[in-house]
Design a protein around this nucleic acid. Structure first.
Length: 667
DNA sequence: ACGCCGCGTATTTTT
DNA sequence: TACGCGGCGT
């Protein structure tokens, strides 16, 4: 408890009624949660297995677990749950499989699998479809709001909505037939289960006697309901959040869940953490001024004792290329003057496409950089292939996995054969793998195609049996050898290096499986695969030394992070606030996005905007963001624009400066 | 099975 | 501009 401020201490000690901690940016919220867990275990003598802390990302969960591990010694931390919402949901589902009507070995469909399934359903429904991803989007929103297909249909407002609702029903039926759940189901199914089976809910309430929720403003309808259900009569919970950092409403988060809490739990205690330990006061004043333009349920004012710090600089650039050049030269300049590391610098932008010019410029100067975003580990083809094999071994009903691997590596099973197989399968009401062994299949298929399918099915069956008996990971290795996956990667990849990298990813995956198995040898393959599917392995690989790399990332992925020097780029109308948000009149969330960006900065903050910018290949002129008007004040220095030196002088200075720096860097 | 062409689209992203 | 996808031809 030492080194905490009175408010933080109060939040840690509070017990007996529900607690909402309104934690401003950089106010030490993770500290409060971890200390609170320690307090519950050490001082209130609660058993760790009765405490659950829930986060949104694996990274946050990992960080929290690590910090709690340092506070709570050895055995007393045993059984503590620190996990993401989705992992918590997965654990509930796998323990209550029967009641939910799922079979053991069920699969988890990721967004890609789900979209592929929807496309397939649309193809066969052969209505003048519409884009699968649009349907997927709506269905996800319905699920997150706990609407069943029937309810969705009942409240559909137009024809498109109705079609999506019908598709939603088909989609759920298919998932069930494949013995699979999607990401949204991981939350939705437990909630529905608890609604239908109060006795099961009681069991889980007895298990989770104290609940802590991080980033509470990001909860969606289903997640909030889960929290409410688990809290129950005991009402023993602490949620931590910040309405000003709610930037995920577009994907179903409901920041009003913060205010709703007060209605649902009248004895809710509210504690505000307003002291910021991250930024200098000029940065905070600017942030406060900007966010004051949003309506607030809870008033909050951040302050800090870190001194005034440097003024905030706002710089106008001629165009996007100039912006990149200027920012990169500023980074070189600053690093040269201050010392320090490239890892102290972050360039934050609204959309990923903005990264390109900065990347190019950094590369020009041989400055190392780290780009967040891009595809995740599990989106990689080779990882998806192997995951699909594992899924199929664990769950023979997983048609998505079947389709993915049936011809990888080549088994000469083409589209026509699969089309016929699928036709037969749906006629018989069985899944694809089962249909391969169906005796009636001769009627639809003959010759080579039939034989190849049967061989494949037999092969899967054999490894399925082995996986159940043998040391699971050995079976996986044997399987990969058997199909010569490495050889397939080599043949397929143009570059030898690429093939090696891909194989490395595969081996990484197998290693993870091995580790999981060693930790708990009793787990089934399906179990391990499902847990793996919710992890982002790359996340953790990436934690390797980034201290000398300039960070490039979107404002969204910067949430929760901090950097000594922040460059907030592209501060223009139609970018922040984004065009579509202007059209939809959703400026407030964009303002919060800008607020999140500003509050990432510890020591210096530089904001840029361009007079012109290339958009879809066309040069367009840009207005400075309205947020620049809103945040201006005595802490903010505007450079460029009217006050900037003439271009020739600027260029001369820039070149001289760069030449000097280059000379020094070369030494 | 593969590759080429033309079309449409174009935030933010985690699990 | 750029990329991915579906359609079509070889």
């Amino acid at each position: 408890m030492s080194g905490m401020n009175p408010r933080q201490r109060e939040a840690v000690r509070h017990f007996g009624t529900p607690l909402l901690v309104l934690a401003g940016a950089g106010s030490g919220k993770t500290r409060v949660i971890t200390q609170k867990i320690a307090h519950l275990v050490d001082d209130r003598r609660m058993e760790a297995r009765h405490i659950a802390a829930v986060t949104f990302t694996n990274k946050a969960a990992r960080e929290m677990a690590e910090r709690v591990g340092k506070l709570v010694k050895g055995k007393s931390a045993r059984g503590l749950t620190i996990s993401t919402f989705h992992t918590l949901g997965l654990n509930i589902i796998r323990r209550e499989l029967k009641a939910l009507g799922y079979k053991p070995g069920f699969s988890i469909f990721d967004a890609q699998d789900a979209e592929a399934l929807l496309k397939d359903l649309l193809r066969h429904g052969k209505q003048d479809d519409g884009v699968a991803s649009t349907h997927q989007w709506r269905i996800s929103h319905w699920k997150n709001a706990l609407l069943s297909p029937e309810q969705a249909l009942a409240q559909a407002e137009d024809e498109l909505d109705q079609r999506t609702a019908l598709l939603y029903a088909d989609y759920q039926r298919s998932l069930k037939a494949y013995n699979a759940v999607d990401f949204d189901d991981l939350i939705q199914l437990p909630v529905r289960l608890f609604l239908d089976h109060p006795e099961t809910l009681d069991k889980w309430r007895d298990r989770i006697r104290y609940l802590l929720v991080d980033e509470y403003q990001d909860t969606n309808g289903a997640q909030y309901e889960l929290v409410r259900q688990l809290a129950g009569m005991r009402r023993a919970f602490t949620v931590v959040g910040d309405d000003d950092q709610s930037i995920y409403a577009w994907r179903g988060a409901r920041p009003e869940n913060l205010a709703k809490l007060k209605e649902d739990f009248p004895d809710l205690e509210l504690i505000k953490l307003e002291q910021n330990y991250r930024s200098s006061s000029r940065i905070l004043k600017t942030a406060n001024r900007l966010i004051a333009n949003n309506p607030h349920v809870f008033e909050k004012r951040l302050w800090s004792e870190l001194g005034p710090g440097d003024p905030i600089r706002v710089r106008e650039c001629n165009n996007d290329q100039h912006e990149a050049q200027w920012v990169v030269s500023e980074i070189m300049n600053s690093k040269f003057i201050r010392g320090g590391r490239y890892g102290d610098y972050a360039i934050l932008y609204r959309g990923n496409h903005q990264a390109r010019l900065f990347e190019a410029e950094l590369r020009n100067h041989n400055i190392p950089y780290f780009l967040s975003g891009g595809q995740s580990f599990f989106a990689r083809a080779e990882v998806k292939d192997v995951m699909s094999y594992l899924r199929l071994l664990a769950n023979p009903d997983d048609d998505a996995a079947f389709l993915r691997v049936v011809n990888v590596p080549r088994r000469e099973i083409g589209a026509t054969t699969l089309e016929k197989l699928a036709g037969h399968a749906s006629q018989r009401g069985v899944t694809l793998l089962a249909a391969c062994s169906d005796l009636g299949l001769e009627q639809s298929l003959s010759g080579k195609g039939l034989k190849r399918l049967r061989d494949f099915a037999e092969w899967v069956g054999e490894f399925h049996r082995r996986a159940e008996q043998d040391h699971t990971v050995d079976t996986v290795r044997a399987m990969l050898r058997d199909i010569d996956y490495e050889g397939w990667l080599r043949d397929k990849s143009s570059d030898k290096k690429v093939a090696e990298r891909r194989m490395k990813n595969v081996l990484e995956l197998v290693d993870w499986l091995d580790n999981l198995h060693k930790k708990d040898p009793d787990r089934t393959l399906a179990d391990m695969v499902n847990h793996l599917a919710l992890q982002d392995i790359l996340d953790q690989q990436n934690e390797e030394d980034t201290s000398e790399q300039v960070r490039l990332m979107t404002l969204h992925s910067a949430k929760g992070l901090e950097f000594p020097h922040v460059f907030l780029v592209g501060m223009e109308e139609e970018i922040i606030p984004h065009r579509t948000s202007i059209d939809e009149d959703n400026i407030e969330e964009e303002r919060r996005l800008a607020y999140v960006g500003i509050t990432r900065a510890q020591r210096t903050l530089t904001i840029t905007h361009c007079a012109k910018r290339k958009r879809y290949g066309e040069v367009v002129s840009c207005d400075p963001s309205r947020f620049l008007d809103e945040l201006q004040g005595e802490e903010v220095q505007f450079e460029g624009g009217k006050t900037k030196p003439p271009p020739e002088e600027q260029k001369r200075r820039g070149q001289a400066h760069l030449a000097g720096l280059k000379a020094m860097l070369e030494e």
